[in-house]
Every structure is written in structure tokens, then in C-alpha cells.
Simulated scan of single mutants.
Amino acid sequence: MSAIKVGVVEDEVIIADNIISVLSDLGYITCEPAGNYGEALSMLGSEQPDIVLLDINLARSKDGIEVAKHIRSSRNIPVIFLTANSDRATVERAKQVNPNAFLVKPFHESELYSAIEVAIHNFSQQQAVAAAQSSAANKSYKEFTFIKEGQYFNKVNFSDILYLSSDHVYVTVHTTTKKYLVRTTMQEYIERLDPTKFIRAHRSYVINMDRVEKINSAYVLINGEQVPMSKNYREEIMQMLNL
């Protein structure tokens, strides 16, 4: 993977130079720092950073939040706000542009590194989820399936499926009215399901996101039942629920 290029928007020259020095020591590529709104837009256009560190309180009329608004409307990169004792109103304004992280000045080298790496990672994950959802949205999925039970095939609407559980080569389809046992693997079964609605919560469980009633760190509550959720899938579920 190529080195990450970091843009810095900070109007205090000494602080900006110090941040650039630390970033270089950490192995990042750095852009020429910008000190105001106009310089920030110029830097964004000419140097194309992968992520931007933005001081909220720039000296001139257009502050770092205005720079972030421009980034959100014209570019697809993560933003980290740098702040020192911002008042509540400023923080509320900052939240409206959905920054990927906040760093309170002064901060240590380790805090800067962690903020950048976590912001890049989470942003990449969000983009992957969005791409998958977009791809799924453009694909046509059936609204029902037929499941064999005895001598008959029963029609089951996917919207009535609460969740799936698997045991080796069998999948139990839990619906609003009954359970069906299907001889297949979980992977084979979920390939017929809309991935924007059905998602793994655990190696052995797939949930219908439209049926989620409550959620905590270990379980998803669906129709009054606790469905296990492992940490490997928790982040994606939280993102899809906008939590």
C-alpha cells in the first residue's frame, strides 16, 4: 500500500510546522500546510491529499468547518478536526459535517497516529459498505422463495424471515410464523438474499436488518429473541444502523 498523503490546515505556523514534522517522522507524505480557507482549497486541488487535518478555529471569517463543508461537497476523503477548548456551539457546528475524528490540542504523536489510522480504516470500511449497498441496490432480488416441507413447497416472503441459523449443512429459516429446516450451507443460502437487508451477525447467524428491535454489544433482539452478534460483524451492523 502506498504511503498516505496528509493535508494540514492550521493558521499557527509553529504548530503547523510541528505537525508536519511529526507526520514525516511517522512515515506519512505531507502537503504544503494551508493557513486559511483559500489556501486550503488550493492545497486540496493541487496536492490531492488522502486525509485532511483541520484546525476548527482559523483566524479569518471562514473557519475549518467551512473547509470541511467544501471537502464533503466536492471530495471523498476523511477529515480530522483539530481543536482547543471549542465552545459547545462550535462543536455542534462541527458535528454537522460528520468529521471522522477529533483531536484536542495539544496532542501526542501516538494520538495523532492513532487518529489518522483509525479514521482511514473506518472511512475505507464505510466506503466498502456503501459500494456493496449500491451494487445490491442495482441488482434485482426476488421477494420470496419456496421451501419444501413434506410433500409441498411453501411460499415464504423474504420480508417475513426474521433470521437464519446454521448447523453444518443445515440452515434453519426463522420466520414470523414458523421455522423451516433447509439442507444447504449458510453461504449458499444467503447468496439469494438482498445483502442490504440480510447480514451476518455471527458465523452461524444471519439477521434481517428490517426486523432488528434492539441491539447491544453481544446480541441483536429480533421478535423478542436474542440473536448472538460476534465482534467480527458488529462494526458493519452498527454502520448499517447508523449507530
Score class of each variant (00 low, 15 high):
161 I>N: 08
112 L>D: 04
129 V>K: 06
208 N>I: 02
103 L>E: 05
202 H>I: 04
104 V>T: 01
192 R>F: 14
219 Y>I: 08
212 V>L: 15
144 F>C: 10
151 Q>I: 15
162 L>S: 10
190 I>Y: 06
117 E>L: 09
130 A>D: 07
127 Q>F: 13
118 V>S: 00
135 S>R: 14
168 H>L: 15
212 V>W: 13
139 K>A: 11
105 K>F: 02
214 K>I: 14
204 S>T: 03
116 I>V: 00
194 D>A: 04
140 S>Y: 12
225 E>A: 13
150 G>Y: 05
104 V>Y: 03
129 V>P: 06
186 M>L: 09
104 V>Q: 00
159 S>I: 13
133 Q>D: 15
96 Q>R: 11
210 D>P: 01
171 V>W: 07
194 D>Y: 03
123 F>Q: 13
212 V>H: 13
107 F>P: 02
187 Q>Y: 15
99 P>K: 08
167 D>Y: 13
156 V>I: 05
113 Y>D: 14
99 P>D: 07
211 R>S: 10
220 V>A: 00
148 K>E: 03
199 I>C: 07
131 A>E: 14
175 T>F: 06
208 N>R: 03
189 Y>Q: 05
159 S>L: 15
113 Y>I: 14
166 S>E: 09
114 S>K: 15
168 H>C: 12
108 H>R: 13
137 A>M: 08
140 S>G: 14
92 E>A: 09
130 A>C: 03
217 S>K: 11
112 L>K: 04
116 I>Y: 01
217 S>L: 10
165 S>C: 06
189 Y>P: 10
118 V>P: 01
130 A>Q: 07
161 I>Q: 08
101 A>E: 12
224 G>I: 07
100 N>W: 03
183 R>S: 05
123 F>C: 12
156 V>K: 03
182 V>C: 09
221 L>F: 08
105 K>T: 00
113 Y>G: 10
195 P>G: 06
156 V>Y: 00
150 G>H: 08
102 F>H: 02
136 A>E: 00
119 A>T: 01
201 A>P: 10
189 Y>E: 03
158 F>R: 10
136 A>T: 01
162 L>W: 10
165 S>T: 00
203 R>I: 11
139 K>H: 08
112 L>N: 08
140 S>Q: 11
106 P>A: 00
166 S>H: 12
111 E>A: 03
104 V>S: 02
202 H>G: 02
222 I>M: 12
199 I>G: 05
130 A>M: 06
120 I>E: 02
90 T>F: 12
210 D>A: 06
149 E>P: 08
178 K>E: 04
224 G>C: 08
94 A>D: 02
217 S>R: 08
175 T>G: 01
176 T>Y: 02
167 D>A: 15
93 R>Y: 13
149 E>W: 11
218 A>V: 11
156 V>E: 05
201 A>C: 10
107 F>D: 01
199 I>F: 02
115 A>I: 10
